[in-house]
Amino acid sequence: MTTTVGSPAGAARRPGTTATAYPRYLAGRLGGAAVSLLAVLVTSFFLFRVLPGDPVKAMTRGVPTSAGQMATLRRQFGLDLPLWQQFTDYCAKALTGDLGTSYQFRAPVGELIADKLPATLLLTGVAVVLYSAVGLWLGTRSAWRHGGLGDKLNTGVALTLWSVPSFWLGLLLIIVFSVGVGPVPGLFPTGGMESGDETGPAYVLDVAHHMVLPVLTLVAVGYAQTLLVMRASLLDEMGGDYLTTARAKGLRDDLVRRRHAVPNALLPTVTMIFINLGHVAAGSILVETVFSWPGLGGLFYQALSVPDLPLVQGLFVVFAGAMIVMNLLADLLYPLLDPRVGR
């Protein structure tokens, strides 16, 4: 940021000079993201080589296999090559978008991931958007009337839910709302993503019906973070002189809040929302497991237990890549939220 504070009246920067600043900011952020992605590629290769267990032995467990067949398998997967050569092969392929072939599924890793990704994106995406919205709304209300009964109730409930384990809450919801307790009938399916016999609009409704409980679980456990960050940053802004100006102008209280206070308080919260969105690909393994959601969480669990190195590496790259992309998006969004950033 080139500062003009304190410069004499006539010498303040003209609007034209800001035009070159944004592309430079953009280039910096894009460069940073590219470097991070490369680092992820390298890390993912070495990180999982450290895992204990021999993939070929794991694959042939329970199947009588001769030493010759084991050697053939090793050669097939390139595991007989020196580590550095495995690494260069992996990098060369990864840069062309080829993440290798899964040991256990004998299918391209890219296809396996693409197959499960939409379910996870749908579930956690909807959950993150919902709990961010709920957190922003309740956090704003809490801060604006801080110290009041509503604030104490809000933060108390949010903190309690935050400390609840997600799988436990999920199981509880299944018992109450799927199995049914006493007068409560079984309202929602116990798991899965679809009943399997619906098409068109009915299919959409069916999926939504299956999503209710897992989304509810994720929102309940997740919204406290957004609420607390929004509450804290809005409280920081509430002493601001510009709010006195806004009140002096004769604005209604809700306009002072919406138009003046909230936009200034949004920046830290938006950072956090994008970090949460970065977690969307990784999903929630626990909640996906409890609700038998056909997403990446289950796939990751299967891959780790072998260890199916190419699949684990591929998933790691996708998870980390999603985080990097979301952070990049957040960086690109900041200048729109706060004109002082990136100039």
Binding site: Y242, T244, T245, R247, A248, G250, P263, N264, D338, P339
Partner: peptide, 19 residues
Amino acid sequence: RWAGASIVFQGAMHSLNAV
């Protein structure tokens, strides 16, 4: 407020909304 009587605040840096 403002239509009948308005205020010029001190330290206009913080009295204007930065965003």
